[in-house]
Amino acid sequence: MFVTELRFDCYADTTVSLAEKAINNLLEAWRANGQVMGREFAVALHEGSFRVRLLLPETQSLANRFNSPWAKQALHALADAKLLAPREKLLGQDINSEISCEESPSWQLLYTSYVHMCSPLRSGDSLLPIPLYRIPATFNGDHKQLIRWQTEWQACDELQMASATAAEFAALHELSDTSSDLFRRGWDLRGRIEYLTKIPTYYYLYRVGGESRKAETQRGCPRCGSKDWRQAEPILDLFHFKCDHCRIVSNLSWDFQ
């Protein structure tokens, strides 16, 4: 990913509240379309202009051709706050994040964790993140529902990793059970993406616990019960199970790795 700085200059007298509302509206529109990463954006007022640093999947992520209808409307609305269109200065590649997938994958999957800020859509060939704005909008002109699902998945992941409260068990249910609301919504989004992209798209089902390593290696697909989903070698050194019928991938329980 890449770090860029945007500068919003005023062309007439305005107020901080008007500028704040217009700029944040644009940033949220870009975030909902996968054009900027992260959840919080620090906007600074410096020498009469507003500046913000953003994390982008690619150097050209803010190009107009990728903008959603909401982002295009938000850009036009800057004028109501007496702001010019932002000037962009690319600062360089972020050394703490992954590069984006540049090639069309043979298959893809929804995979994230609480430590990842990148796109939850990954290449099945390399596990590199695929920028969401490069695929057709999933719902209502952008990918807001997919970003929301990712945020909730990461929140559950952080709770179960902390292992500090009873909420751990509810969070683990959402991550690892095919009857959970989180799975249902994510699996439906997966299907929508597959329909739009015409690329086989899978859902990563988190797995921890189990009775024994032997029982774990022999468990069937949690949706159809097939035992054929066990792989001879883990895919990408991570996924020991893959059901092509149910479009699910999973890991050998972390308790037995």
Rank of each mutant, 00 (worst) to 15 (best):
D80F: 06
C101V: 11
M117A: 05
L75Q: 10
S68C: 14
P131S: 03
S106W: 09
L109V: 06
K82W: 04
S97I: 04
P129H: 05
P105C: 05
H116D: 02
Y111L: 10
H76N: 06
Q73A: 15
E88S: 14
S68T: 13
L78V: 11
R65I: 05
D80A: 08
E103G: 01
I130D: 02
S68F: 12
K82E: 12
W107A: 03
S104T: 15
L91E: 12
V115A: 11
I95R: 06
Q108M: 11
M117P: 03
R122P: 08
F66M: 00
R65M: 09
L83Q: 06
S68W: 14
S100Y: 03
C118L: 04
D125Q: 02
V115C: 05
L75Y: 03
D94G: 01
L90A: 07
A77Y: 08
I95P: 09
N64M: 14
A63R: 12
L127R: 01
S100V: 06
A81W: 14
Q108D: 02
L110K: 01
P86C: 14
D80S: 11
R65L: 06
S61R: 05
C118I: 00
H116N: 02
L121A: 10
K89R: 15
P131F: 03
P131K: 00
L127V: 00
R65W: 04
L62P: 01
I130W: 01
A63F: 09
N64Y: 15
S104I: 14
